[in-house]
């Protein structure tokens, strides 16, 4: 198979296992490309991509931009902070105005869940979801799974625990879909106030004891506490959270095996993960960032090349 089953990348939920494998094998080639002396290929030279960021982002935005540039696409960037959105323009109007400047693809981050899907139904361009509220963040899940695959050779059969603020995390949901489709076993761990009520319907087990979860897993994915999305107190204090759900070197060394530690960034050092763990040999946090560019190149290449 050489094409994706979807026209847009809205969420991992809509992808088949074959799609994931195609993205990974293509990303293998792009990872090789970005380690060459000249890191650029001409594939997307006749494509224009708009990066629309209605919400703050550093990593994802830079990663997409770099992926697009490495593919030779023309790009325009937009962030809502200093735009006409503040004047009351609707999403569809904003995007259609941008598209009338002959844009072929849109990469969008938006605070509202479903924004990417909504857009895909109303505008004529290929849409890549770069995070929609607490819903999905498909490219993050792809790069996470790609990094696990790189480390272990395969995702199938691996035990992965996602720790922390599951309730507010789009990374958690996309990762649950992605890892399960690839045959991994997924558990979530965190204070019950930060675990969505119906998460068990996704076939995910909930553990509240971090040490127990770590003993079980091959990979621990530590999530950031998303204070900006928390409109009420979900736990008494950061210090208490850190004591119960933070990963430090002592805890990591107390396990009888070498687990792999991941984090989607940005890290709150000293809250969900201590500095010595983040910078340890068991952490693949910076590999995740490198792989992000390769995976995004694969997604853009496969979507842009798909015949209508």
């Amino acid at each position: 198979m050489s094409k994706l089953s979807v026209e847009h990348l809205l969420g991992i939920k809509h992808l088949q296992k074959e799609d994931l494998e195609l993205i990974f094998s293509t990303a293998d080639n792009f990872k090789q490309v970005i380690n060459r002396p000249i890191k650029k290929v001409p594939s997307l030279r006749d494509i224009t991509i708009a990066n629309l960021f209605f919400e703050n982002s550093t990593r994802t935005k830079l990663s997409f931009e770099l992926a697009e540039k490495r593919l030779s696409a023309d790009i325009i960037n937009f962030s809502s902070a200093n735009s006409s959105v503040k004047k009351g323009e609707t999403l569809i109007d904003t995007v259609n105005n941008i598209l009338s400047m002959k844009v072929d693809m849109v990469v969008m981050r938006h605070p509202n869940p479903g924004a990417a899907e909504f857009l895909s139904k109303h505008v004529d361009a290929k849409i890549v979801n770069a995070g929609d509220g607490a819903h999905e963040h498909p490219t993050q899940a792809l790069l996470d799974a790609f990094s696990i695959r790189e480390k272990y050779g395969d995702v199938n059969g691996k035990n992965v625990v996602i720790v922390g603020d599951i309730l507010h995390s789009r990374v958690a949901l996309s990762n649950i879909f992605c890892l399960q489709k690839l045959g991994a076993n997924v558990k979530v761990c965190g204070p019950l106030t930060l675990i969505p009520k119906h998460i068990k319907t996704l076939g995910v087990e909930v553990v509240t004891n971090l040490k127990e979860a770590l003993k079980w897993c091959d990979v621990a994915m530590m999530l950031r506490i998303q204070l900006e999305r928390q409109d009420m107190k979900f736990f008494p204090s950061l210090r208490e959270y850190s004591m119960l759900y933070g990963l430090d070197k002592q805890l990591l060394d107390s396990l009888d095996k070498q687990i792999t530690v991941m984090h989607p960034g940005p890290i709150n050092r000293g809250v969900e993960i201590t500095s010595d763990v983040a910078d340890s040999k068991q952490s693949i946090i910076l590999n995740q960032v490198e792989n992000g560019v390769a995976v995004r190149m694969a997604v853009l290449y496969l979507l842009a090349g798909k015949k209508e």
């Binding site: 094998s25 293509t26 090349g305 798909k306």
Partner: peptide, 13 residues
């Protein structure tokens, strides 16, 4: 690319 069918599957370099 984009002119003839779907993208080809790349091989290893």
């Amino acid at each position: 690319y984009r002119r003839q069918g779907d993208p080809l599957v790349p091989n290893e370099t």
